[in-house]
Design a protein around this nucleic acid. Structure first.
Lengths: 223, 223
DNA sequence: GTCTATAGCCTGATAGAC
DNA sequence: GTCTATCAGGCTATAGAC
């Protein structure tokens, strides 16, 4: 786990106002979407004055940008971690998947309505597309490695569609859950549900060994 | 195809102002999301005055509701059509799938950000969940019929996850496309892409006959 | 760093003439 | 049915005292 970039939390001191603002804002954004959350609402949640909020973040957009930066850092760290796995190892990849799911849930407001998000923070278009492309590339590489290791076997024609479906399900599963039932708080069960959805996507293509590893991960106690 | 409920278009007369408002609003909502579209913007697009707009629709919410009603009517008609298929017929079901895709694209603003949508039109929560549940039930029935007809074979444990994945992909493919590349206008290629994504989801479970029917539909000229 | 007070804009919506 | 004119309220953001 990387160290606390941007002093996300000081080890000894209590959380700074800036930190508290970001935590509350993330929570509100996830609940109602950035466009539906007012700066007054944020200030109230943090129990500070609205003017004070603007001392720390001069625009609403800068709040969105700051939260995205955190997501970006976490996502890139995860990719680096996955790339660093020495030999193809389905268990390591399964763990990678689980972390990605947790990340998607934590920052789910980023996925809920991208066009709307870009309306309030236009400067985010480039970075978002870059992260998205990077993640997909990383998944692609993992697939290739698993294939050469005989863990998975996908016909050439099926490869791209399968990757796209994996991406869609592992990205929008949280949105789907939020719709289907008014799921508001992430319980480990929900992450597990999402994981099993992706698992069922892959299962037809896995080797017996990889399949066994996957089932084992799914039956593991929830992190 | 059902007749024009709510006088969607009069056969002879040119489109009414009300109709023009709905068409323009749908387009704007799909482009920018309901929350980002102002009534002034709508009035300008229709080339009428803002006061006139409020003569036809007294609230912004009523615009959302009116558009949803159209989607609802189309969706229910589609379900009825699917239920009326006399014998299990993969070609008929494939056509059903294609129409559903077209519908999702046409009203994609409804799927883009459900929580945000409910913020501007709270009364829509019930109807939306009802339609969603109805659609999923209908798909479930189709699966059952295909199974008893030997067109498809899914292990009991895999059934529910597969259905959920079909639902996720067939609902969020448009959102995914909008993100991945700035796809704004539906070309038939995009619908075809979405269809092929769902097809690749089902392919591992299809009988040779059903698979052949599916490939045939996919290679057909785009409607 | 935190507060009070307020500016300035934009929004959805209404009243009433034509 | 369509327009002009206008309002009240909420929003982001700033200025300046403490």
């Amino acid at each position: 786990m990387a160290e606390n970039k941007g002093k996300r939390t000081e080890p000894t001191a209590r959380p700074s106002t800036r930190e508290r603002i970001l935590v509350s804002t993330l929570s509100l954004f996830n609940q109602k979407g950035p466009e539906a959350v007012t700066t007054a609402e944020i200030a109230e949640a943090v129990r500070i004055n609205q003017g004070n909020l603007y001392y720390h973040f001069r625009t609403k957009e800068s709040l969105v940008v700051a939260l995205f930066s955190r997501f970006e850092a976490d996502a890139l760290a995860l990719v680096a971690e996955a790339d660093a796995v020495p030999a193809p190892d389905s268990k390591a990849y399964a763990g990678f998947l689980r972390k990605w799911f947790s990340l998607v849930w934590t920052y789910r407001f980023l996925f809920r309505d991208l066009p709307g998000l870009l309306a309030t923070a236009p400067g985010l278009r480039g970075p978002i597309l870059a992260v998205s492309a990077g993640m997909r590339l990383s998944v692609d590489v993992i697939f290739q490695r698993m294939e050469t290791a005989g863990l998975i076997s996908v016909a050439a024609d099926d490869r791209k569609p399968l990757l796209a479906n994996v991406w869609i399900v592992s990205t929008y599963w949280a949105v789907y859950l939020g719709l289907q039932e008014g799921v508001r708080d992430l319980s480990p069960q929900h992450v597990h549900w999402g994981l099993s959805q992706v698992a069922s996507l892959l299962r037809p293509y896995l080797s017996p060994q990889a399949k066994a590893d996957l089932e084992e991960m799914l039956s593991e106690p929830l992190a």
